[in-house]
Design a protein around this nucleic acid. Sequence first.
DNA 1: AGTCCCTTACTAACCAGTCAGTAAGTGCCG
DNA 2: CGGCACTTACTGACTGGTTAGTAAGGGACT
Lengths: 194, 194
Amino acid sequence: MDSETPGEILDATGRALCEHGYAELTIKDIAAESSLSTAAIHYHFDTKEELLNAFLDHLIEDFEERLATDPDGPSERLSAFLEAVFTPAEKGSGAFAVALMELKSQAPYQETYRDRFRRMDGRMREEIETTVSEGTASGVFAETDPGTVARFVVTAINGGHVREVALGEGPSETRAVVEDFLEARLGWTPEGDA
Amino acid sequence: MDSETPGEILDATGRALCEHGYAELTIKDIAAESSLSTAAIHYHFDTKEELLNAFLDHLIEDFEERLATDPDGPSERLSAFLEAVFTPAEKGSGAFAVALMELKSQAPYQETYRDRFRRMDGRMREEIETTVSEGTASGVFAETDPGTVARFVVTAINGGHVREVALGEGPSETRAVVEDFLEARLGWTPEGDA
DNA sequence: AGTCCCTTACTAACCAGTCAGTAAGTGCCG
DNA sequence: CGGCACTTACTGACTGGTTAGTAAGGGACT
């Protein structure tokens, strides 16, 4: 009844993906990373494609959970957002970033991937946009176009993401870029703490 | 003596890479995209890896050539830089962006790729930094830290690049973000024309 | 004759997915 | 309780197709 095997497979997929890369990822690799045989993986996921789709869903779900902190004011909400985005996930440092970028570079060939990424992007933009709107309305932030700010922030996040993967750069540099921008545009300051 | 076959192979590699993606790229695909057999490709490039390294060099060379326009003033130089970066390459629209992103996502597993990308990033940052320095020194641009501006611009370019690939977005949106930023920070305006 | 560029034909390795079989339950009936 | 039917979750062995790379040879130009 319990059977959390699919979860174990998804976790193993993540590890195998980070170790071998999308191009060289085989069911055998995933099996080796788990306690199961290749046939067992095919028992739970008919095809490799299906497994990878499920893995991406799992990845996005995790990410959205991390975003789902709903603090009080706009300033705190912005801080929490940046914290969620720029804090490396629980697991191995750049692993999440690498796995995600692997899948993003496959998006031109996989419509299902593209849809998911668009949805995720929309959510992030919305979150920033409404937060900024609230902030300017209540006078906490300076007057600006929230859509422009949101677009800037997501673009920078995307950029930092590539830099992490392609250059091996840490997330802090990009975080500084975003915070610098928000300070100049909104008068917001990085300290959201007590 | 002429024999521009290697060039033909590199071009075919680009087309095959865009069509099939890095993960599914085979020597056979490249052969099909050229007028040669798979064995002929192995005659010129011993291994697939060697071919892909040469292809990346070719890609970066092309890009650096596009950047190598050396106009008069800092303002014009900035315009030329943005034009070079955001104008889709001669060939198929997003093809270049897709191929490059494929290779970038492989960077964590290929040190040679990472080195090349770091060098390219350094060059871009330097170009922007010196241009901004010149501009502020001659009073054309407002006073700011050139390094911060450069970092912002490359991060946004990187971000636009992912957005093109993962979301299917055009380059104009990111260009607007960058131009908006440069206007605010430097007092620079998009029109560098007569 | 030699070497440069290329072909057809091949091979050894590998991969996703299949298959037959099995051990461990689960529900049901007498 | 015990035995029967059936399901779930898996394994090890296999297969058909594909892949990077090789071997051997042919033709053209020098």
